[in-house]
């Protein structure tokens, strides 16, 4: 049995409206405070693995390396710093982009180096929310489009 196109259109519109409503809501507090984050780097891990700040914060990342020279490169912000044992490095920036950003070691430090990765989460994760909305819309749209097409073909005489 083919789905009722009007039902699917209704569900799709509802999903879209809810999603757009959610995304249009205020992005949350932007206190713009100073945040000092201390990150310890060792082969092949950052501690903490996940760092959370608010959007608008002035972030100071203090990178301390405990076993070898390590670096930090922040995806999306495209900033980097390098720390040697006993010589910490600082990365200062304004967290003006929301979302989840990977930071990774920028100095070849050993075999697992390419996978030495941490995460910086800035404010509400709007990119993920938008992607999930897009997922919902695409799913409903694809189900509606291909479902009704399949239903029509099914009803057609052979």
């Amino acid at each position: 049995m083919a789905p009722n196109p009007s039902h699917l259109a209704f569900v799709g519109t509802l999903v879209l409206a809810l999603a757009l409503g959610a995304l249009a809501a205020p992005a949350g507090a932007e206190d713009g405070s100073d945040r000092v984050v201390h990150i310890t780097a060792r082969s092949f891990a950052f501690d903490p693995e996940i760092v959370r700040v608010n959007r608008g914060d002035r972030v100071v990342i203090e990178l301390e390396s405990v076993d070898a020279t390590h670096g930090i490169f922040l995806d999306g912000y495209e900033l980097s710093a390098k720390a040697e044992p006993g010589h910490p490095a600082q990365l200062v920036f304004a967290a003006d982009k929301t979302g989840s950003f990977r930071f990774r070691c920028s100095v070849a430090c050993g075999n697992l180096h390419p996978f030495m990765i941490g995460q910086l989460k800035v404010g509400r994760n709007l990119p993920l929310q938008r992607a999930l909305v897009a997922l919902a819309v695409v799913t409903v749209g694809a189900v509606w489009f291909y479902g009704t097409r399949s239903g029509r073909k099914g009803r057609a005489p052979d």
């Binding site: 049995m1 997922l135 799913t139 694809a142 399949s150």
Partner: peptide, 20 residues
Amino acid sequence: LVVAVNVVFKIGSTHAARVR
């Protein structure tokens, strides 16, 4: 995902109760 859903419904269309 879009291509996968297309394939899902093509496969479904070979059965008696296609879409559900």
